[in-house]
């Protein structure tokens, strides 16, 4: 798929979308969603991060090597996050004799 041409209009639309997302994050924060408040706010943040990376940082317009580097970085971060949280969240699930 061909990315939209990077014009001032594209940048302005992304900017307005980002402001709308910040407003949305803040307003949803006032609703009590229990433990999901932070999940929703981080999800909104991830969408904003994606928009900034693709358009403001022009990742969408970079070559294949840079796209691989970015994807690799995100994958390594997710490995760190998943393994660490997997460890902490499952401690105590198995009975260890003597503990």
């Amino acid at each position: 798929m061909t990315p939209p041409p990077l014009t001032r209009k594209t940048l302005a639309l992304v900017f307005l979308a980002l402001w709308a997302l910040v407003l949305g994050t803040t307003l949803i924060g006032f609703i009590d969603l229990g433990q999901y408040n932070i999940v929703v706010s981080v999800a909104f943040a991830a969408i904003q991060a994606l928009l900034i990376a693709l358009f403001f940082m022009q990742a969408l317009y970079e070559g294949r090597i840079i796209r691989i580097i970015i994807t690799g970085g995100i994958v390594w971060f997710l490995i760190m996050e998943t393994l660490t949280l997997g460890d902490y969240m499952t401690r105590g699930w198995l009975p260890f004799p003597g503990k």
């Binding site: 932070i38 706010s41 943040a45």
Partner: peptide, 11 residues
């Protein structure tokens, strides 16, 4: 940072 520090206690 805004998402993890400012939003969770808003409600």
């Amino acid at each position: 940072l805004y998402a993890i520090f400012y939003i969770p206690g808003l409600h």
